[in-house]
Amino acid sequence: MDLFSRSWTALRTAVAELPDEDFEQPSGCTGWLVRDLVCHLVIDAQDVLITLVTPSEAEATVNAVTYWNVVEAPTGDDPLDALTVRLAAAYEEPRLLKFHLDDVGSAAGRAAELADRTARVSTQDQILTAGDYLSAYVMEWTLHHLDLIAELPHVAGPPAEGLARSRAMLEEIAGSAFPGSFSDEDALLVGTGRRAPTAAEIIELGPLAARLPLALG
């Protein structure tokens, strides 16, 4: 199973196994509860489906790494973030969110398995191969899996392979490696601003510390 499928399956499985009360816990995304994050995953799955059926004959403009832009750190005030919160509340019951994620998420997973990885697709005014697009989404699934478990230590985390690949992509975006003493999870959390570095970590990071966090969008 490739990293997209493995990471996506692990994330969907973690959501499917959550008890209802966990949906009201904070997530690792600023201003979002777990239910809001799960609603965002439904939208992500729809984006995957849309992109994989939006072919392009143009030359690729980005790859799996340059697909990502460094953006302003989220504050929770963005109109689209607020819309996600309202959509999540409209589901009313966690089982409905679970059902919709399983339904659309399974379809996105099947579409990924059937996709021609060499074919070029278009998304957000960029062109890239389907393979690069799906590789980029390993980062999306991995970071959001970490967001899911931020306040839920009893929930299984993302696959080790996805963590390692996401760290490698983040290091390429940063143009610098994280210290070897950082676990893959810590490199991703600190690197994207999901956790503030400790005083000791700031010293270890050296010049890289001044360029963090790298919020991705």
Results as ranks from 00 to 15, higher is better:
residue 6 R to F: 04
residue 8 W to F: 09
residue 8 W to Q: 13
residue 10 A to C: 05
residue 16 A to K: 08
residue 18 L to A: 10
residue 19 P to N: 10
residue 20 D to I: 06
residue 20 D to C: 10
residue 21 E to K: 11
residue 24 E to I: 01
residue 29 C to L: 12
residue 32 W to I: 00
residue 36 D to G: 01
residue 39 C to R: 10
residue 39 C to Q: 12
residue 40 H to Y: 07
residue 41 L to W: 00
residue 46 Q to C: 05
residue 47 D to E: 10
residue 53 V to Y: 13
residue 65 V to K: 00
residue 65 V to T: 03
residue 66 T to K: 02
residue 66 T to Q: 07
residue 70 V to Y: 05
residue 70 V to R: 10
residue 73 A to K: 10
residue 80 L to T: 09
residue 80 L to G: 06
residue 81 D to A: 05
residue 82 A to S: 11
residue 87 L to T: 08
residue 88 A to S: 15
residue 90 A to I: 09
residue 91 Y to W: 03
residue 91 Y to D: 01
residue 93 E to D: 15
residue 94 P to N: 13
residue 95 R to V: 07
residue 95 R to I: 06
residue 96 L to G: 11
residue 98 K to L: 03
residue 101 L to E: 04
residue 102 D to S: 07
residue 104 V to Y: 08
residue 104 V to P: 00
residue 109 G to C: 09
residue 109 G to M: 14
residue 117 R to F: 05
residue 117 R to M: 02
residue 120 R to H: 14
residue 121 V to L: 11
residue 122 S to D: 09
residue 122 S to M: 15
residue 123 T to K: 12
residue 129 T to V: 06
residue 131 G to L: 09
residue 138 V to W: 07
residue 142 T to I: 03
residue 145 H to G: 05
residue 145 H to I: 11
residue 151 E to S: 12
residue 152 L to K: 01
residue 158 P to R: 03
residue 165 R to C: 01
residue 165 R to S: 08
residue 167 R to P: 07
residue 172 E to I: 05
residue 177 A to K: 14
residue 177 A to P: 01
residue 182 F to V: 01
residue 184 D to L: 02
residue 187 A to V: 03
residue 189 L to G: 06
residue 189 L to W: 01
residue 191 G to D: 07
residue 192 T to S: 13
residue 192 T to M: 08
residue 192 T to E: 05
residue 195 R to V: 13
residue 195 R to D: 13
residue 196 A to G: 12
residue 197 P to Y: 06
residue 201 E to M: 13
residue 203 I to M: 08
residue 211 R to Q: 12
residue 212 L to H: 11
residue 212 L to V: 11
residue 214 L to K: 10
residue 214 L to V: 04
residue 215 A to L: 06
residue 216 L to W: 02
residue 216 L to T: 04
residue 217 G to S: 14
